[in-house]
Amino acid sequence: MSNLIQLNQGIANIATDAWTLVQLPASQVEERKQAGKVVLFKLTGENTVTNEQIATTAIPATGKIIVPLSVFITRKNELASRIQQGEVGVWLATHEVLEHLVKDQPDLNTLPIIAIHVERFADGRIFSLGTLLRTRYGYKNELRAFGDVLRDQLYFLKRSGFTSFQIRADRSAQDAIASLNDFSVPYQGAVDEPRPVFQRYNRTA
């Protein structure tokens, strides 16, 4: 059974997944730990993708695919016609630099889907990435969270602009749906409701 929750006009449903996720092959390169330089600060302790990985990534010949950011950028020519037809989406890991995507693909809305992989539940970068995609870069299509996605992140993911959620395989997506609405009246403005509570209600009454 599908473990994908999709939000459509605020209504959540379990949906079958039309997309095939393309993974990078396993890397032989060691993790870069504690890089001291300012520019590398972001990558501290995280894998970087090698050229070899990019070149050897197996891309299915047909169908709708979500490819890794590095593959999307490097092998763009190869994918050009499929991108035209709206069959290519992009996924990135939380440590990857969003601006690389934006620079490479100024009109993000040619992408029908962008997905963000969160490796660990506690990694809250995903919320800023979603927020930036929606508010800074004007992205309007499907925004998906996958990886260590459990029900207790859903409310925050939704508020950060995500519209689909691939719940971790060992958990029930059906149970998780309820948590999208853990809270009914948010205090602060965010992506899904940009007005803070004091802009929505007359609280002086």
Partner: peptide
């Protein structure tokens, strides 16, 4: 206090 309560973007900081 109200603004920081369940601020979605900052729910899981480093």
């Amino acid at each position: 206090r109200q603004w920081s309560t369940f601020h979605p973007e900052f729910a899981l900081l480093p």
